[in-house]
Every structure is written in C-alpha cells, then in structure tokens.
Design a protein around this nucleic acid. Structure first.
Lengths: 242, 242
DNA sequence: ACGGTTTGTAACAGTCTGTAACAGCGCGTG
DNA sequence: CACGCGCTGTTACAGACTGTTACAAACCGT
C-alpha cells in the first residue's frame, strides 16, 4: 500500500508506432500494413461493443489502448467471457472464413482499437507475405492459449484458477512494460468469474483467501503480488502466453 | 438394442480421395496438394502417439481413418484432453509458428493419418493460394470450436455437458456419413471426463441418468440416441461445428 | 480361462454454489 | 457540493452437486 499508485499506468509502450507481436518474438510494424490497408481509429467507451455475433464480418481490430473482453453466447441466453485483450492483440481473427462475426467484443474501459478492413488485409497479404504468416501464427497462438486455459479450468480448483489468472494478467502487463507486481484489474468480478467458470462470489472468496495467505494484497480491483513463487506453486506452473 | 449393430461403421466416406472440408463448406482436394507435398501414410495403433509436446514441429497430419485425441499437459503432470479428431481433421496446426509441437496427439483406435511436411506445405501455399486460405480458415474454425466448448464447460452442469457432447459426436458422425442415432464412442470414460472437465464416475452417472430419462440407450461404448430434441433441450442448443 | 483394464454403482465427504445481507464506490441529480 | 441510488464487491451460511473412495461386474487381449 505504500507503493505509489502512480506507478500504475506507467507504460513503456506509448503513442509511438504500434506493432503486431507474435509468440515467437516476431514483430510486424503496423506502418508497413498502413501502406496497403486503410486504418480507421475507433474509440470505444467502457461497455461499448466493437462488434457483435451475427454482424457482417468486415474487419479485424488491433487493440491500441485500453482493454476488451470477448464473449461467446448461446441462443438460450447463456454467455461466457472467453478472453481479455490488451494492446497489441488482434481481434476478430476467430471469424475469418465466416460471413458474420461469431462472438462479441466489448470494451472494459475507455479504449481504442484500429480497424483493419478484411478485404484490404487479404490484398495486402499478396504484397506482404509476412502479414499472412503473422495472421496464421496469431491464430495458432490463440488456439494454444485457449487450450492452455482449458487445461487450467479442467484441472485446477477455484483458488488455483484465480492464482493462475492473476499470474497471467501480471505477465501480460509485464510484457507491455507495466509493473507485474502492482496493477489494476480492468474487468469486474463477474467477468473474471465467467472467464474462470466460477461464480463471482467464489472469485471474491478466492481473492480474499489469497490475501489472507499473504500471496497478494487486494482491494477491489487493485492487486499487488506479494509472493510470486507462492502463487506459481498454487497455479501449478506456467500458462502458454498469448 | 434390436437395431443391428452392423449398421455401425457403414461409412459414406471410403478409401476414395480424402478431402479437406471447411466450416463454410469449401472442400480442398487432397490430390491437388499431393502434387506439391510428399504425403506419407502413417498408421497408428490404439494408444500410439502421432506427436508429442516438445518434439520438433515438422509436419501437419490429416486424419484419414480412425480417431485421435489431442492432450494438453502441464509440467506438474496435470493433463487434459482438449479435443477428439476424426477423418478430415487437420492436426498440428496449433503448433504453427513454433519450433516444437505444443501438445500430444494419440490414436484412440487403430487409425491412419497422412503426414504433410510443413516446409513443403509452405512452398505449396505459393502455388495453391486456396491452401493458405484453407489452413487459416481451419485455424479460425478451431478457435471457434474451442470457444464453443468453453461456453459449454463454463455454463452447463455435468449432465448437460454429457448431452452436449453426445450431440456433437452424433453430428460429426452424421457429417461423415455414419448414423447420428447409433454409434460407438471411440474414447474411454476417462478421456470423455477429462475433455468435459469431469470425473469419469460423474460421466457414468450422467450417462445412466440420460438412459433412465429415455433420452439415450447406452451400453458401455455403444450409444443410441432415442430423443434428439430432449437431448437438445438439455444441452441448450447448438455447438459450433468443427 | 486368466488377469488386467474399463465401466458401473454406492456411500460419504468436500468444494462450490445459491441466497442473503451489508459495505464501498461511482455517478447523476438536485 | 451533498445526497441518494445503483452497481460492484465482500462475507456468512445452508445446501446441492460433484469428487472421493471403495468395490463389483463386464469386457478385453493374451
């Protein structure tokens, strides 16, 4: 608590050129793409949707700032958060090959995503073979990440899932140049719970428990990681990073 | 029970040309690929692995006959079945972009998969643009399928998961030209349970319960669907097909 | 026919859930 | 700027479902 909250939000990533980064470390400069694809910057208020299931699939979206959640929904009303997206994440790839988007994407806070019209991307792939490879690689990474979470959800108890989730969030912040030990969760307990296949009360209890065990310090959405190794021991070692 | 078991296994798909079929209905003839890619037919006995996590990523595999399971595993020994593959399914795509495979693939019965060396595939993509599109589309479909299962696992109780699973299996058999109402499960209760994030006893109970409700008739691995609508009502309507 | 594996059933225990009440924070309104 | 409402988050307790453990039966390959 005596850590200045001001460090939160000190990003290495700035307004400077965005990039598309891949699991293998490859980075594709967005500027190269801009020469072939008309990019529109889209701002989204907290709670606002980027696209919804059923709408015509027209573009991919690159997260530039803020954060988003992807939601899967069934015709009978059931819904499930299937992932959280931060800067550098390419959204909409799951709908490639379809006429319409297959899921919803919603901003968790005031955010910005860059719209990349898909037909233009297809044309750009002819000029930029590495763009094609990038998209394929990003999709493969998405599959691996999803499978990794299936492993978590299928094998870990509630408390451990929450620990694994916090470690994942921490790693993602670290990757973006933010602190991995002190951060603000951008999603509600309900969204976390949905993603982790738990109830929000269970998530609350688990977080309180991790707090009591001195593994973390948590106050509403502000989290400090006090014992990374302890968390790792609970979560049972690594997750495939996005 | 009085239905002749001989109908099981009467396939529309035969030794004739294999094909790669996509969610949008596209089919890519394997013969076109064979002109660019050296295909090796690999037979696998029940329980035998096709590839394992950590081994160098060298090839994709197209299921020609039989069935396989894909397994995710953590360093601490936890493991989880993340999917079942049948004829027409392309395996290994999740490892594109990596030096090594990220998961295990194991044959559930005596099966055959066709090995497609990845470097040759990459070269073939230059001559066959639809192959590139196919692989991208297959990956996107995989993401959608996985997310669909996340929704199931996150929102359905045990009995409903099993119902949804049976409907999925039925649909896949139907797609291959087999009966959707009478089939043999190729995987053990343990594999089913792992995939559904349950214990095998729970799967047994759920199957017995569905039997008692006259929705299915089940005897060990032989399943007959007696009431599709009843099952659908339980499972809460559709799954994104692979 | 045999032993090992897979599957089914049961009783018990445990975790997670459901419900409820309350507290804290944000936000709009007056 | 204060107030009050609503949403979010926390905690407690009872209860339901699933997991656990144990054992028996059916099946399989040798």
């Amino acid at each position: 608590m005596n850590a200045p909250t001001s460090v939160i939000g000190t990003a290495a990533a700035t307004e400077a050129n965005a990039f598309l980064s891949l699991a293998n470390g490859d980075r594709l400069d967005i500027e190269a793409i801009r020469q072939h694809v008309p990019v529109r910057r889209c701002k989204h208020a907290a709670g606002q949707g980027v696209y919804h299931a059923g709408q015509p699939f027209l573009a991919l979206y690159l997260v530039h700032s803020g954060s988003y959640k992807t939601c899967e929904l069934a015709d009978d009303g059931r819904e499930q958060v299937t992932g959280f997206r931060m800067r550098g994440s390419l959204m909409g790839t799951e709908s490639i090959g379809l006429k319409n988007y297959s899921c919803d994407v919603i901003a968790l806070e005031d955010s910005e995503a860059w719209e990349l019209p898909y037909p233009a991307i297809l044309r750009a792939c002819l000029h930029l073979p590495e763009l094609q490879a990038y998209i394929t690689g990003a999709l493969a990474a998405e599959v691996r990440s999803d499978r990794s979470w299936m492993l978590m959800l299928g094998t870990l108890a509630a408390e451990r899932r929450v620990a694994a989730f916090l470690l994942d969030v921490a790693a993602r912040y670290a990757h973006l140049g933010y602190s991995a030990k002190h951060f603000i969760l951008r999603m509600s307990r309900i969204d976390m719970a949905s993603f982790l296949a738990l109830k929000h009360e269970t998530v609350s209890r688990a977080l309180s428990r991790l707090h009591d065990l001195h593994l973390i310090s948590v106050q509403r959405r502000e989290v400090q990681v006090l014992d990374v190794d302890g968390l790792r021991a609970l979560a049972g070692s690594g997750l495939v990073l996005n």
